[in-house]
């Protein structure tokens, strides 16, 4: 796809960053969103042609190579699974020359398997595709696969969320292996190279869907601009007033004790009268 098309898509999709709570989202999240949704993912369901131009045998002329990707659909369930860029392809099959085309869905083959994250020191039972397992083998481990692959190829929220957790764990110095300092150091040596690509804020905002990010931003904003109950305000005012009044009263008392009033002379139980 040409560059202008990509940017056109970006403009169209980034409109939601201009209004409402979306406008409050930080640049760090916008960067992740572009990496996740706008960047062109690796071709999985088709073989892209190499080169810029090719010779057209039929037209007997040179024509440009334009790879138009096959549209892929992602059901919402894939966000809890690891499909590694695979998706559902909706299209038609022409099963015979003389028969009418028939609609067909090419659906990835899913199976339940276990993945092990070395950094988190956790085994996880997840639904995966064969491609996901093969990618793990090709990258020599689940952590390397997540950390090396951009978000546009990981696609599912589970994968990008796990990537965020791993990055956070690494930036915190790997507390999961606190009881084994030798292994902790080894893991840090092996994986800290990946941290250089992200700032602390980018790690914090990595791997959220737009709605989740908005929710998080909302929480941050409400925490920041927490309304103070009026009763607290009034109480504070009242206490101040009372304090001021007390000071006044004590002042007055001192004054009154210094100059004896005429009521005291009348009082039959007053000390002065007794005397």
């Amino acid at each position: 796809m040409s560059n202008s098309v990509k940017t056109a898509g970006a403009i169209k999709k980034l409109l939601k960053f201009d209004k409402g709570i979306g406008a409050c989202l930080p640049e760090a999240y916008k960067k992740f969103y572009v990496e996740w949704q706008v960047t062109e993912p690796t071709a999985v369901h088709y073989i892209p042609e190499d080169g810029k131009y090719k010779w057209d045998e039929i037209g007997q002329k040179v024509i440009p190579v334009q790879n138009i990707p096959i549209p892929v659909k992602f059901p919402k369930e894939h966000h809890q699974q690891l499909w590694a860029g695979e998706g559902v392809v909706q299209g038609f099959q022409k099963r015979d020359e003389l028969s009418r085309r028939v609609p067909h869905f090419w659906i990835p083959v899913l199976k339940r398997s276990v993945v092990y994250s070395e950094v988190l020191d956790k085994y996880m039972s997840v639904v995966v595709t064969n491609r996901a397992i093969n990618m793990i083998h090709a990258h020599y481990g689940f952590d390397h696969y997540l950390l090396k692959t951009p978000a546009c190829d990981l696609k599912s929220l589970l994968a990008v969320g796990l990537k965020r957790m791993i990055l956070q764990e690494l930036s915190n110095g790997c507390p999961a292996h606190a009881n084994n300092p030798i292994k902790q150091k080894e893991i840090l040596d092996r994986y800290t190279q990946y941290l250089s690509a992200y700032t602390a804020e980018e790690i914090e905002w990595y791997g959220y869907s737009f709605n989740e990010a908005c929710k998080k931003m909302n929480e941050i904003l409400t925490e920041k601009n927490k309304p103070v109950p009026l009763k607290h305000l009034y109480r504070a005012k009242l206490i101040e007033k009372l304090k001021a009044a007390q000071i006044e009263a004590t002042d007055r008392k001192i004054e009154s004790s210094s100059s004896s009033s005429w009521i005291q002379s009348i009082n039959p139980f007053g000390k002065k009268h007794e005397a």
Partner: peptide, 10 residues
């Protein structure tokens, strides 16, 4: 590009 395919190629 890491062309590892275990899927339908169309």
């Amino acid at each position: 590009r890491q062309q590892i395919r275990t899927t339908f190629i169309l």
